[in-house]
Write a protein that binds this DNA or RNA. Structure first.
Lengths: 144, 144
DNA sequence: ACATGATGTAATTGTTTTGGTTACAAGTAA
DNA sequence: TTACTTGTAACCAAAACAATTACATCATGT
């Protein structure tokens, strides 16, 4: 099991749009950097657009960020690309036997724990922004 | 995307073995409580056995916990049933273009963040034991 | 107006994972 | 021996992913 790479690609796309501001980042160009098909990029960019993170116009090459780098958290991207449903990171077997002490109670016992675990994970993304990503990339670049 | 219910079922199995100590919990019996096939239960119990959490003997019905309830964390179970690989909760697109500023650095920038998020999630399970689960179930039971 | 090139989106495909199912070898015990 | 259990292997349908192809639609420059 693994969470879709749409999330990583989404971060890649947004960072690239910013670091490549001077020229238009077409889906073809981004696809070259990500190393995938342009249609895949357009699909993910569609999600980012729908979430209000970027502005794109049909027919015109490129996209721009809707907000400041520091105003876009990784959690925003995570939600935009829809890689994990709300409180459904962990699946629970359904219809455990209601006549059994464990079967009757296991779901309500486990659910809040799974929710807490998912929240702990998501909080990491809430505390990081695209600015952190871009600055980290720039720092690595300046060293080389 | 969702993490396999093997984890939830693993917790269910162990809690049931404990709460049903007085009689032997055969795979058939457990399957009834979980509401699935006995072969599925045996497969998961094989993982729990391999991880040293339970003791089972071929041919003889039932299983017993290898350690005290308080000595078995949810993280132990999580690892035992192998639902998420080490540091691979999030997948990252591979072979981004090395001639691109973003493509060259994105992986090393994102990886530690993804690891931190996964760790935050796993820590929740490290801080909970089967004892917490069983006590919670017993508490619910005593109210009814 | 028209050609060019871009985005938006649907349909298809191969691969992998999941959970369920059947079957059966091998062990245990009355 | 008989009955029951665990341990596995094999197989299947369904779902998710990422890649790919195709094409409608839009924008722009000549």
């Amino acid at each position: 099991m693994s969470i879709s790479s749409r999330f990583a690609v989404g971060i890649h796309i947004l960072a690239l749009i910013d670091l490549n501001k001077e020229t238009a980042s077409s889906s073809e160009f981004i696809a070259g950097s990500v190393n995938t098909n342009a249609a895949v990029i357009r699909k993910i960019m569609g999600m980012l657009k729908k979430a209000g993170l970027i502005e794109v116009q049909p027919g015109v090459a490129g996209a721009k960020l809707s907000r400041e780098l520091s105003e876009i958290t990784l959690f925003d991207i995570y939600k935009a690309v829809n890689v994990v449903e709300e409180n459904e990171l962990f699946s629970i077997h359904d219809k455990p036997h209601p006549d059994c002490v464990v079967g009757k109670n296991i779901q309500s016992t486990i659910e809040p724990i799974f929710m807490a675990a998912q929240s702990a994970m998501e909080k990491v993304f809430q505390n990081l922004t695209l600015e952190d990503i871009v600055k980290d990339i720039e720092a690595k670049e300046s060293v080389q």
